Measured scan of single mutants.
Amino acid sequence: MGSVRTNRYSIVSSEEDGMKLATMAVANGFGNGKSKVHTRQQCRSRFVKKDGHCNVQFINVGEKGQRYLADIFTTCVDIRWRWMLVIFCLAFVLSWLFFGCVFWLIALLHGDLDTDYKDDDDKSKVSKACVSEVNSFTAAFLFSIETQTTIGYGFRCVTDECPIAVFMVVFQSIVGCIIDAFIIGAVMAKMAKPKKRNETLVFSHNAVIAMRDGKLCLMWRVGNLRKSHLVEAHVRAQLLKSRITSEGEYIPLDQIDINVGFDSGIDRIFLVSPITIVHEIDEDSPLYDLSKQDIDNADFEIVVILEGMVEATAMTTQCRSSYLANEILWGHRYEPVLFEEKHYYKVDYSRFHKTYEVPNTPLCSARDLAEKKYILSNANSFCYENEVALTSKEEEEDSENGVPESTSTDSPPGIDLHNQASVPLEPRPLRRESEIGSRR
């Protein structure tokens, strides 16, 4: 089982795998120059863009038009607004034209077009017409509009002379109601789609790998820009990579689940303020055997998904993003964004995407760390350097704002901070800030 798991979770494809794949392509008759073999020097295209759209195009789909027309309502909801407006206008105009032609044909076959009612006051002739005051196609078209929109100006009306005319008036009224219901329903469904809710759900630009509770963890940050909550919010993550099976089958995008606390339930989050999602790199993680150097040379993509129900409509929305291997910062942490004021908490989104480097973060893999092949620094050293990194950030910001350097908390000259780390230190809580992250 261990060997199978290692093969499945191998992220960085070796040169031997690339040569094996190329040999397979030639042997199977696919070596026509169009096949692409992804190596370390040639990274694959992003499968999920940063804005959440999937970078996929469908080609050679059989009976595409028929399949889309069979699900016309979903098609109308998914198309762009400009095409929705075109369909909206065409549906009414074509129905008016169709029934206008029908009423014109009825008048033509009944002989109503030969009668001039402007110079004739004989009401008996008017009563013999199928539709009064309809003696041309324009008049028939206007009567069709008046019937379907129930305008009723009063000059044109159907008589009991022709039952077919009466039937067409009733039929057009029913068709008009159906068109109204369909168009209004599609427009309302399109307006109520929770897709735009994703514009106020954000992911951090970069993911980070750092120590948390004595273990290497992959972390990324999510935030909600609205005050309205995302009900039943939960997160998922998958690692996408290519691999070759033991039988020699090439899988271009193998999807591997990344555990973010599904078993323990901590994948469900209360997204009021930005939260750091934590994936513990343990023996079940696809990143277990990867060191910093392996991450730098790897070719994979981590897709992160945030799902929840919109509070206003109770409709489920899904926000997506992805991180390539070069977008994962090893040995970094996110800057705090949640600050405790006197009577409330304040979230500073200008710090949302910012990170700071944490010294002495192990550069080895989580496996080597678990097997004690890498000796961690003293816990006080880690905490102290973590505090120094934050303090230096604040000093830089104070210097930019014009604060005198004498007010900063610099260490005395001639003292090495790293050498001082081995000395037991008193706890130094942050002056006014605390970061709330997901705790395992």
Rank of each mutant, 00 (worst) to 15 (best):
E327I: 01
V260C: 14
P359S: 10
M309W: 14
I269A: 09
F171L: 07
T355N: 01
Q42R: 10
D348K: 01
S273H: 12
F352Y: 03
T409N: 07
S381R: 04
P404T: 07
N224A: 13
C177I: 15
G33Q: 12
V166F: 02
D416K: 03
V77R: 09
N326Q: 08
N297L: 09
S10Y: 03
I302Y: 00
I277W: 02
E400A: 11
D410P: 10
A298T: 09
V202Y: 10
P429W: 10
V26R: 12
F99N: 00
R5I: 09
H234N: 13
D284C: 12
N198Y: 10
V310F: 05
R8K: 05
P412S: 10
P194R: 04
L324D: 02
T245Y: 10
E161D: 01
E283T: 10
Y384I: 15
L290H: 08
I269M: 10
E15D: 10
D284S: 13
K196P: 11
E161A: 10
S381D: 07
E15T: 07
V347Q: 05
L290K: 05
F171N: 02
Y68A: 08
W104M: 10
N378S: 12
A298Y: 03
Y349N: 05
E133D: 07
M188A: 15
W83E: 03
E357F: 05
S321C: 14
R212M: 04
T147Y: 03
A91H: 09
E397H: 10
L324C: 11
S35T: 09
E280T: 12
M168S: 14
L142C: 06
E395P: 11
R226Y: 06
T39H: 08
R82L: 08
L239P: 01
A139Y: 00
K118L: 01
F155I: 11
F300N: 00
E247G: 06
E394V: 10
T150P: 03
G308H: 04
K193E: 08
R80P: 12
H53S: 08
A298S: 10
K34M: 14
Y250H: 15
D296R: 04
V303F: 07
Y9K: 13
Y68M: 11
K128M: 13
R156I: 02
E311A: 13
K393Q: 15
S408K: 12
S321M: 14
P424R: 09
S95Q: 09
S392P: 13
G31H: 10
H418P: 06
N206F: 06
G52A: 02
V131S: 01
K128Q: 14
A233D: 01
I258Y: 01
P274I: 02
D17L: 04
V170H: 02
R80T: 03
V61Q: 14
S173R: 04
V337Q: 00
S95R: 04
D17M: 05
P359D: 14
Y334M: 04
D263P: 06
I275A: 10
E433I: 07
D296L: 04
M211K: 08
V86A: 14
S399L: 11
P252E: 15
P336L: 03
R5E: 15
S406Q: 13
T355Y: 02
E435W: 07
I244G: 14
L287Q: 01
S365P: 01
C157D: 03
D112W: 00
D122S: 02
G261N: 10
N7F: 04
A192G: 07
V358N: 02
R333E: 12
L230C: 08
T138W: 09
D122H: 00
I244C: 11
L201F: 03
A186I: 07
S264W: 14
N60V: 05
E15C: 05
Q255I: 09
A314M: 15
Q57P: 03
A129V: 04
V403E: 14
S291H: 10
I256N: 05
N378C: 07
M315R: 09
F171S: 03
C130D: 02
G223M: 12
S322D: 02
D348W: 00
F58R: 15
D289L: 06
D71W: 12
C89Y: 02
N224S: 10
C43D: 14
C383K: 09
C217F: 07
N135Q: 14
T313G: 11
K64L: 13
V37P: 12
L113A: 10
V175N: 01
V388T: 15
P362H: 00
H279V: 01
G265Q: 11
P412I: 14
Q42T: 12
T150L: 02
G31I: 07
A298V: 08
K373M: 08
A139G: 15
V231S: 11
F262M: 12
N32G: 07
D254T: 04
V131P: 03
A237C: 09
C101M: 14
G111R: 04
E249Q: 07
F182P: 02
L85H: 06
K227L: 07
V187R: 02
D299V: 08
V272S: 10
T147I: 06
Y349L: 13
Y349Q: 12
F99K: 01
D180T: 15
S321K: 12
L109F: 03
T361P: 02
I72H: 13
G29K: 08
V48P: 00
G2A: 11
G111Q: 03
Y9W: 10
S273E: 07
D114L: 11
A233H: 13
M84P: 13
T150F: 03
V337M: 12
H353D: 09
V235R: 01
V61K: 14
A237I: 01
V423L: 15
E395H: 07
A129P: 05
G185M: 04
E396D: 12
P362R: 01
V222G: 02
V37Y: 06
R5A: 13
V388P: 13
M188L: 14
A91G: 13
